[in-house]
């Protein structure tokens, strides 16, 4: 278990929502469960915009990273084995999905206590997203360190042991593995996942989500707060407290006293 600022991370923790990746590069105190600070060198961040394709092979690339982070040949072998990458494949010929998996496989190299993984799926083709998530899951479980994975889609929450939902780094709902969500923003994100539909069928989310600096960040786009004047006033003016709803912790005034 690791504390990343206010976030209690356990296993594969996922942070869903918009513009959350900024917290990966912000100054945050990272401690273990006993309050001991974790050195920066043991925290690895794989940003969502990994585009660099050095003109080398997969094996050569891993060797270079190993030299930088203090990895050994056993770890390189493990990275190749678990990621399923072809060691002789040139990075310049690799698909975006292969590149994303390769970057995540560098977590095998050196000593990693916490892995921060950006929203890699944003650049990957839809049919290969599941492949990437499966590989990421496999790698993170084998590496064994705690991790925080940033995602914008609810479609792949199956890999998460713990889920945070929020925007701009602010948590609105926290779930300890339960796949039930209650915050209106979580519900919008859930509804926005669309599958194959009928010709002409409309998607259920009709308006873009906007976030406010005051009160509850989601109040501008919240349908729930519009049902009651007193509630609306509170949502606009005051930051919501955390309430226990089902197994989740939800920051929403609607659940006050319920």
């Amino acid at each position: 278990m690791i504390f990343y600022g206010q976030l209690k991370l356990n296993g594969i923790s996922c942070f869903l929502g918009e513009d959350n990746e900024g917290i990966a590069t912000s100054e945050v105190k990272v401690t273990d469960q006993y309050g001991n600070e974790i050195p920066r060198a043991m925290i690895r961040y794989i940003p969502s915009n990994v585009k660099e394709r050095p003109p080398t092979t997969v094996e050569e690339f891993l060797k270079r990273i190993a030299t930088r982070v203090g990895g050994n040949s056993d770890q390189i072998y493990k990275a190749i084995l678990v990621s399923g990458a072809d060691p002789s494949r040139k990075l310049t010929q690799a698909d975006v999905s292969e590149l994303a998996v390769l970057y995540v496989s560098t977590l095998f190299l050196g000593d990693v206590r916490l892995a921060l993984i950006g929203d890699l799926l944003s650049k990957v083709d839809d049919p290969l997203k599941l492949f990437v998530m499966k590989q990421v899951y496999k790698i993170l479980k084998k590496v064994g360190s705690d991790s925080l994975v940033f995602m914008s889609s609810f479609k792949y929450i199956g890999i998460c042991d713990k889920i945070f939902v929020g925007a701009k780094g602010e948590v609105m709902e926290e779930s300890e593995g339960s796949k039930e969500f209650y915050h209106p923003y979580s519900k919008v994100l859930m509804d926005s996942v669309i599958g194959i539909g009928k010709r002409g069928e409309r998607a259920s989310v009709r308006y873009p989500v906007t976030f406010s600096e005051v009160g509850c960040a989601f109040h501008d786009s919240c349908e729930l707060s519009k049902t009651d004047r007193r509630l609306r006033r509170k949502c606009i003016l005051e930051r919501p407290k955390t309430f226990r709803v089902g197994e989740n912790r939800v920051k929403c005034w609607y659940f006050e006293g319920k």
């Binding site: 479609k155 926005s192 669309i194 989310v205 009709r206 873009p208």
Partner: peptide
Amino acid sequence: IGSGLNDVQVNVILNSLL
């Protein structure tokens, strides 16, 4: 249409095209 957009935004653009 989904390039560079998240799920919510894809929903909105899909509806706009319809």
